[in-house]
Design a protein around this nucleic acid. Structure first.
Length: 287
DNA sequence: CGTGTTTGACCTGCGC
DNA sequence: GCGCAGGTCAAACACG
């Protein structure tokens, strides 16, 4: 039987120059569209931040008033529920990407030693609505040790411990957002004492099915204190850059798109399916 | 057989 | 002191 050989490599160099110009024009138009959208989102975010600050001030005033009136700390669960209700005003996607201490969340105020407080950070991850699993791929190995239905949210909360290294005491909690069932709220407690070789969420635009909300293109000036490495793209500034920079940015964007696609399991599966289909077709044709 | 998940029981802290 | 809620444990189970 004759062995068939199919060239599956992508030869991008054979594209005619007029097609490249056309593609560049399309990319420039897309960039301009994204710039205006980014500008609009930035303005919205500014307003949200202002509202958040105002609410935060109001909350602090209430806390101070309560301290003065009763001389005792505010009822912690009450405060927590107030904070939760604040997050319901669309603030959550912004604020919960920051790293906060437990004292700031009023969770463990009994521990007054701030130096020993494990760092608590929250990450919002968008998943498909039909996806009922509470598994978030973040490059680390996790062992699930519990699941619980909490009072304020009908969705169960899953508890994970880092199983990458026995000495690593990092924990994470995963629960679907009360407001949006397509969003997973991932709470990390502590810091890993080891590296990770395949971080997928925090550092890169990879999976299309699990998109961290913290990676939406926002102006870096809008990001409040966060120790988590969060990728931000300020597309607004692209209007004042020269053509050389535009060209390099376009290349970067294309590279990012290619990287995102190649890392996406759905895309690779579809690609493999298409290639195997082509091979089968070719084999059938040869026969 | 080893590893990871499930799930009911148990522990602990907080509010009343 | 009691009840509630969140967090953890550990035996049973599933899977490769």
């Amino acid at each position: 039987m004759e062995q068939s050989c199919v060239d599956t490599s992508l030869n991008l160099n054979v594209i005619p120059s007029q097609h490249i110009d056309l593609a560049a024009e399309v990319l420039v138009e897309e960039l301009q569209r994204l710039s205006s959208e980014n500008k609009r989102l930035t303005e919205t975010l500014n307003k949200v931040c202002e509202n958040y600050d105002a609410l935060q001030k109001h909350l602090n005033q209430l806390k101070d008033a309560d301290f003065e009136k009763e001389g005792t700390p505010l009822h912690k669960r009450k405060v927590e529920s107030e904070i939760n209700s604040m997050n319901m005003f669309g603030i959550s996607s912004f604020t919960e990407c920051s790293t906060i201490t437990e004292e700031e969340t009023f969770k463990r105020p009994r521990n007054n030693n701030n130096n020993n407080l494990p760092k608590v950070s929250k990450v919002l991850v968008r998943t498909e609505a039909s996806d009922t699993s509470l598994y978030v791929r973040d490059g680390y190995q996790w062992r699930k040790y519990g699941q619980k239905v909490t009072r304020d949210n009908p969705s169960p909360r899953a508890y994970f411990k880092c199983s990458y290294a026995p000495s690593c005491q990092v924990k994470k909690k995963v629960q679907k957002s009360l407001e949006d069932q397509t969003i997973l709220v991932v709470t990390y407690e502590g810091e890993h004492n080891h590296g990770n070789d395949q971080a997928e969420i925090s550092l890169s635009l990879t999976s299309l099915s699990e998109t961290p909300i913290g990676l939406v293109p926002i102006s870096s000036a809008m990001v409040k204190s966060t120790t988590n490495p969060t990728l931000t793209l300020d597309l607004v500034q692209s209007t004042i850059i020269d053509n050389a920079q535009k060209s390099s940015i376009q290349k970067l964007l294309i590279q990012q798109m290619a990287t995102s696609l190649t890392r996406d399991p759905n895309f690779t599966a579809a690609l493999a399916s298409a290639i195997s289909g082509r091979i089968l077709d070719h084999t059938n044709y040869m026969e």
